[in-house]
């Protein structure tokens, strides 16, 4: 099977002269169709730079990106743009406060020419319905919605564009846990129903454990470990991965035990 997205030896440097910062170094990985790949790392690990390159916000300094078996140029065609969408961390800022949520969702439809102009409002309403919001929400301003509802709108915006790959940049870390659980379920259901692929960027390993198929661990711009989710949690190869898991605040006895075993294994 061809991977939906491939990164081949991708690097990115910022600045010039004496002030060069290497944000991403020689990173290669694949995302298969229908797969959820978690990108895990702390601040400065290069997660956001990676997301911006996948989204075409800026180009890579070296290396290649491939999408669906073809090279992905930095200057994206509308087709590429519609296929790769973004859901941001903070839905309060990712939706324009002065426009209705419907207008935000519709933007992609207008840009890509999806549906005839007269049908687009009903497509917007259908997308809202898919994320579990009432159709008449399209006329509301973002301020009238709760945090979870706003994040659902952001997801609807990505869906309405008929995307195939969604970059989820900390999609639930600004939400309360009860809301987070519902949004994560929604993301899981949508992936299954539509065969979407996710690049799920997060620092929360307990979320990763329950939504990702594979995990890529980043540190200082480098990919230090990439493996199936189960393997990462039961048998992490890198100390850094172990540290990350050890730092997760947990609530149950079993989790504390798992952490303790990882910690003692790390010392031997």
């Amino acid at each position: 099977m061809t991977p939906l997205l491939s990164l081949k030896n991708v690097s990115k440097t910022f600045g010039h002269g004496d002030h060069i910062v290497q944000a991403v170094r020689d990173v290669s990985f694949d995302v298969m169709p229908g797969e959820c790949l978690a990108v895990v790392g702390e601040s400065g690990s290069g997660k956001t730079t990676l997301a911006n390159m996948i989204l075409g916000v800026f180009g890579q300094s070296s290396g290649e990106l491939w999408f669906d078996g073809k090279p992905l140029p930095t200057r994206r065609t509308l087709e590429h743009r519609s296929a790769i969408q973004l859901v941001q961390q903070n839905p309060l800022s990712s939706l324009n406060p002065k426009r209705s949520v419907g207008a935000s969702v519709r933007l992609g439809l207008d840009v890509y020419g999806i549906g005839s102009p007269s049908d687009r409002w009903s497509l917007v309403e259908a997308a809202l319905e898919e994320v579990g919001l009432p159709r008449d929400f399209r006329k509301r301003p973002p301020a009238a919605l709760s945090g979870g509802q706003r994040q659902r709108v952001a997801i609807a915006r990505a869906l309405a564009c008929q995307s195939r790959l969604v970059v989820l940049d900390e999609p639930t870390s600004a939400l309360d846990v009860l809301v987070q659980a519902r949004v994560l379920r929604l993301l899981n259901d949508l992936r299954a129903a539509k065969g979407l692929s996710y690049v799920f960027i997060t620092h929360d390993l307990s979320v990763v454990r329950n939504v990702a198929d594979r995990v890529a661990v980043f540190k200082s711009g480098q990919l230090v470990e990439c493996a199936e989710t189960g393997a990462i949690f039961e048998n992490p190869r890198e100390d850094y991965t172990r540290q990350l898991i050890g730092a997760v605040p947990v609530v149950t006895r079993e989790e504390i035990e798992l952490r303790n075993t990882l910690a003692t294994e790390g010392q031997t």
Binding site: V177, L178, Q180, A181, R182, L184, R185, N188, D204, L205, S206, V207, R209, N210, V211, G230, F233, I245, V248, V250, V251, T252, E254, E255, L258, R259
Partner: peptide, 21 residues
């Protein structure tokens, strides 16, 4: 209980199902 159930576990088990408030 709902709050505790909603926290994803690092031991796995999938995303918890939360009843409506």
């Amino acid at each position: 209980r709902a709050l505790m159930a909603a926290v994803p576990r690092i031991t796995g088990g999938g995303v918890p199902e939360i009843q409506d408030m």
